[in-house]
Design a protein around this nucleic acid. Structure first.
Lengths: 240, 240
DNA sequence: TCAAAAGTGTTCTGTGTACACCCATGG
DNA sequence: CCATGGGTGTACACAGAACACTTTTGA
């Protein structure tokens, strides 16, 4: 393998990990799954779940495996997408560790199941991360910030919002996803028209659901389109 | 470091490389820089330039170094952005090599300078890649396809098109960048209005330039804005 | 009958689109 | 003078924003 190496003293193999930024919408909060580290470095500090990539798996397979091992989540029902690679040589005090960050999005998961490790796993509201709760380990705050920005942008031009909802959902639920993640109020009637006029975004199931109070709402399920055209742009307007 | 390892027989360190998808617009063609591999595997086949990440550099620094070593290009004048990580365990026949792909965009570079290695470096028109010219090494065709899609999308909502132009440029030149990359004709007068009405996209220099024939064109330079709002959407219309 | 949420309709305004037209230069 | 590309103006259709209004349920 060293036939490629130009100056073998300058190159060495690296540890490669995957880290997961797992988000869900619960009520009117965007939540991210964190673990409390049980080992040094950063012992006791919150961190994104993750771990080493194994010999014979793809990066995506590694992410799915960690999703299961660290959070007890079956990835087949969620949206998993690569966010990017983070490889600053000083990001891990123990040496060079390149991590591939993945974004995982899903409907309100039943329990923030503890991982197979000793670490505690829990859902944290994204809005409360800036202040206290202890600083995130490694460069995980950077990864999380990038993840958030990615979600906000993806809501505009993909149907990704639907993965935060269940199998079927009302337009109000879908709108709440947008409102929570963008942090701004959207006009219900305009949102409705926009979504229904975007070909393939959602399709009616024919069923209805009764809200706590008020008229029953029609249920929809995910449509066939992933890319939205025209996109659902968030104007700079709309104070929350 | 193995304090993290859950099952050390399943984990091993990986080689980490950076690969570069370097694009420029020349005339009415989008060009990508390829090298002809001088070594096995895939000897003699075209490939993206790239190489191993060294011990003490960030991924971005590695990309900049390879840009210089393999293509003789000074990265300070171009746009460099991470595309993603590619880590299928079978992507390199010699074993596990995770590569971080970078996108590099710049104005028509003077010469497709050969690298410091024996390999030949040359600009290839993107339009001719699908057909012959030999298949690309490794998974580089996948990387290139992802890169293209990324550029096309980024043209819509960022001012990235300006990095394909020189220090100052006419609106026709800027429009040509869009037309070449999107592969569709744009109305000159509407393009003009759109660009000038987007705050911070370009700013007039006051200079003019004489085209081969016709009225002199005003020159512009890059503005302060990177994100365009509103974005410059390509409708599904406009046959080239 | 009231509150609350779903759903419809309407008006206003801005923006993309298509296209006609004028301007400045070299040949 | 003409050809060529730069640059301006305009009319139309459509889409988003704001908001009034109707419908359907439970309490």
């Amino acid at each position: 393998m060293d036939e490629w190496l130009k100056d073998s003293t300058e190159v060495e193999a690296s540890w490669v990990t995957v880290d997961l930024a797992i988000f869900t919408v619960r009520g009117d909060q965007l939540m991210v799954l964190l673990i409390e580290r049980g080992l040094e470095p950063f012992r006791g500090r919150p961190a994104l779940p993750g771990g080493y990539v194994q010999k014979d798996e793809t990066l995506r397979e590694g992410a799915l495996r960690e999703l299961w091992e660290e959070a007890g989540i079956d990835g087949s029902r969620l949206h998993l997408e690569q966010l990017g690679a983070y490889g600053d040589p000083r990001r891990d005090p123990r040496g060079r560790v390149v991590t591939i960050a993945y974004l995982a999005l899903g409907p309100d998961l039943p329990v923030p199941v503890g991982g197979t490790d000793a670490e505690r796993a829990y859902w944290a509201p994204v809005s409360e991360l800036a202040e206290g709760a202890g600083e995130l380990a490694f460069d995980h705050l950077i990864i999380l910030t990038d993840a958030l920005e990615e979600i906000r942008r993806k809501l505009e031009y993909t149907a990704v919002a639907t993965v935060f909802c269940g199998e079927s959902f009302t337009l109000s639920e879908l709108r709440t996803v947008y409102e929570v993640i963008w942090g701004q109020h959207l006009d219900p009637s305009n949102f409705r028209r926009k979504v229904l006029n975007t070909a393939g975004f959602v399709k009616p199931t024919g069923e209805q659901r009764l809200p706590p109070t008020g008229r029953p709402a029609a249920l929809y399920s995910r449509g066939s389109a992933w890319l939205l055209s025209p996109p659902l742009l968030r104007g700079a307007s709309h104070p929350a």
